[in-house]
Nucleic acid binder design. Structure first.
Lengths: 209, 209
DNA sequence: ATATTTCCAGAGTGACCATTGCGAAAAATG
DNA sequence: CATTTTTCGCAATGGTCACTCTGGAAATAT
């Protein structure tokens, strides 16, 4: 009878199930943080957008900081996925070019906040929020490392000239994305971002082997 | 005797003079806003750093938003002065080059916050602070216009090739500065910023007439 | 059914937010 | 010296902050 007691893989919890969809709520929260920032989005704002009460929020996500971290993860998984896809391109120059043109595309999509949720987030904050700022800063650092790794692979595979400085070129591309995020938040059009990105692309192409 | 009644240029006010130096207090306030951001710096933080009480602050500056605006002006006058100086350079390419290398210098100076106080400030905020965000955004727009004007002058004077798109090149340079500000706030060294700026300079030089 | 577990609604927690009234102290004018 | 004018220190304003206590309803397992 009770042989497979612990073998049941997805045992439903005993009590009343959650009334709202966690992922859906997270998506709404992410967009609110994206638009207002970590300090600018209050719990009242979040619960209103998510359509739940504070204690539902706190039972599903343990704190505002934790909810923000999950929202950032959601953003990386859903919106930032195209970044990873662009870098997976076989040729390094094409990869970086796609990275920039897709940034221009993503940063100006209608029906959602402009700019990047990570590139230019929590650059300054109250002292009590410094851990959160450090977390986002680390995410930016990870992206820079990703770009740098792609550049190094490009050098190894002979697509980029051996004299290329991976650190400098990665920071250059990263700065372009960050600057595009700022200008997108200031209302720059997709065309304007593409035009400025073209300058960066020209510089990248100069390093083709 | 009372001939020069209204001619007196600097008539001291009648009452008790202010106990603190206004400019000095403003400088301290600017640095606090610079480090913590508009939303991150509380009145308590500001009064502590400025060494005055709240009502002294409110009598000298009318509100937090107004104090912030004055702090931004102070920043432009004192720190941003080098930007204007760089753009005054006779040759457009040299002007833009100086602009970027001095940004690398200014953004990593010891003894004060890293990054730019304007380039990457108040990108997101609570809805009630949107007027402040718009103000800073306008300042960024003005800087972009300044760079663009310098590019146009460079084309007119024959230093830059006639095919140069002033809008795109100005946005490109602006994005570099904004990106450098982000990375400086994330802890990038002056050398790292100079290295990435060199990529931008190469692209600028490509437009030499 | 009954028992058990969890969710959700209203209201409220102390703490901190930007901002201010009040009265005393201080400096300049007459 | 007396008057005027202004600053400044203490304390407090209502409001919002992130966060939670309590109680009853709801949905599962037994």
């Amino acid at each position: 009878m009770t042989i497979a007691k612990n073998a049941k893989p997805a045992s439903r919890p005993r009590g009343r199930p959650r009334a709202f969809d966690r992922d859906e709520a997270l998506a709404k929260a992410a967009e609110t943080f994206w638009r207002l920032g970590y300090e600018g989005a209050s719990i009242a704002d979040l619960t209103a957008v998510m359509g739940i009460t504070p204690q539902s929020l706190y039972s599903a996500f343990t704190s505002k900081a934790d909810l923000y971290r999950e929202a950032l993860q959601w953003y990386q998984d859903h919106v930032g996925a195209s970044t990873v896809a662009a870098l997976a391109e076989g040729d390094a120059v094409i990869a970086l070019t796609r990275l920039l043109s897709e940034a221009a595309e993503e940063f100006t999509k209608k029906g959602r906040p402009h700019g990047c949720m990570i590139s230019t987030a929590v650059l300054t904050c109250a002292t009590e929020n410094e851990p959160v700022a450090r977390h986002v800063s680390d995410l930016r650092g990870a992206t820079l490392a990703l770009i740098r790794a792609r550049v190094e692979r490009g050098i190894d595979e002979g697509q980029l000239s051996p004299g290329t400085d991976p650190e400098a070129l990665a920071r250059f591309v990263g700065a372009m994305i960050q600057g595009m995020s700022v200008q997108a938040q200031d209302g720059a059009s997709k065309a304007a971002l593409l035009a400025l990105a073209r300058h960066a692309v020209t510089e990248i192409e100069r390093h083709r082997a």
